[in-house]
Computed example of a mutant assay.
Amino acid sequence: MNLRELASVGPFFALRTDDDPGGAGEEYLPLAARTEEAVRRRVATVADRLGTADRRVAASVAYQGIAGRLLSVALGSAVLTGRVPDLADGRLRWHPARPAPDDLWLPAPAALPPAADLADQVRDHVLAGPLTTLHATTRAVVPVSSRLLWGNAASSLAGSLRVLHAWCRERHRPEEAARALALTRALLDAPPLSGTGTLTAPAPGGPAFARTTCCLYYRVLPGGMCGDCVLRHAPRAAR
């Protein structure tokens, strides 16, 4: 499966596909495995980068980052190629300490069988696959809300849509831009992402998303909030 064009959309849409990235293949771990130690390492790395001792914030942001990577790859591939990459157990690996695009490694990428409903395929093989496993592992390591994490996944998906939609429009590919919007709507309208937010039709600035949950990032940036935050004002304690 050729993912070269997908990588041109942006770093979140790219992943390593070489035989052994940097000669350090042993450092990459199966993402689908319940590797609690790897999640602890990732949470610690994110906490250090954010400059926070709040492990719930770090766990939230860490999960959102990986969700954004997986959903960007799945959404982008489905829109641009009509196929979804096989991210099954044992195929996709990650490096907890590396940033995108070097955090994910998929040697010899292959596509899942053709499907009439790509949203169902992304839901079954990504949301209900590695993201559900990572969801459970994250909550086993840090006591963070399940609904918050799925809200993070939905926010990440909407962010991926905005980047991909803009990329398609800039290249005069309106059919693919429309396909990206339709696929994202379908994913947001069904479990586990249903009820996590509202996606509005494209505006001059592109699709917009408003969450029904909070990722807790305001605790790192006092008085600041994400663009799709459910909060109308930062909580008084954060100010």
Results as ranks from 00 to 15, higher is better:
H95Y: 06
P202K: 01
V230N: 02
E36S: 12
L15G: 04
A116I: 02
D86K: 14
A203E: 05
L149R: 08
P99F: 07
T196I: 04
E26T: 11
A140Q: 11
E175K: 13
A203T: 08
P191Q: 14
A32N: 09
R34F: 15
D19M: 08
S156F: 01
A58S: 10
R83Q: 13
A237L: 03
A234F: 01
A177V: 13
G223N: 03
G23P: 12
L188C: 13
S160Y: 08
P107W: 05
G151P: 07
L181K: 11
T132N: 15
L188H: 12
L216I: 03
A110C: 04
D124H: 15
T200Y: 00
T198A: 09
E27Y: 07
A177C: 12
R41V: 14
D120A: 11
V61A: 13
Y217E: 12
R169L: 13
L3G: 05
A154M: 08
L148E: 06
P101Q: 08
A153R: 05
P222T: 14
G159N: 13
L181D: 14
R83V: 13
L106G: 00
P30R: 08
R239P: 00
Y217D: 10
R41Y: 04
A58P: 04
V73M: 03
G25W: 00
M225C: 03
P109Q: 06
L157V: 00
P174G: 07
A67G: 00
A44S: 15
V43R: 12
A78S: 05
P143I: 01
P96N: 03
R232W: 05
D54G: 07
R123W: 06
G224L: 13
A158K: 10
R162N: 15
G129S: 09
L127E: 07
E37I: 12
L104W: 05
E27K: 09
L80H: 08
T212C: 08
R219L: 15
A78L: 00
V126Q: 02
S145A: 14
S194Y: 07
A116F: 02
V73Y: 01
M1W: 05
V61G: 04
P107G: 02
L161M: 13
L183T: 10
C226P: 00
A24D: 15
V126C: 01
R147N: 11
A238P: 00
A119G: 09
F12T: 01
A111N: 03
W150K: 11
A190F: 12
S194Q: 11
H125F: 06
V163M: 14
V73I: 14
A74F: 03
V46D: 02
P204I: 01
V61L: 08
L216D: 07
C168H: 09
A88F: 04
A234W: 01
P222E: 10
A78F: 00
S8D: 14
D19N: 06
D228L: 02
E5S: 10
G224N: 09
S145T: 10
L221C: 11
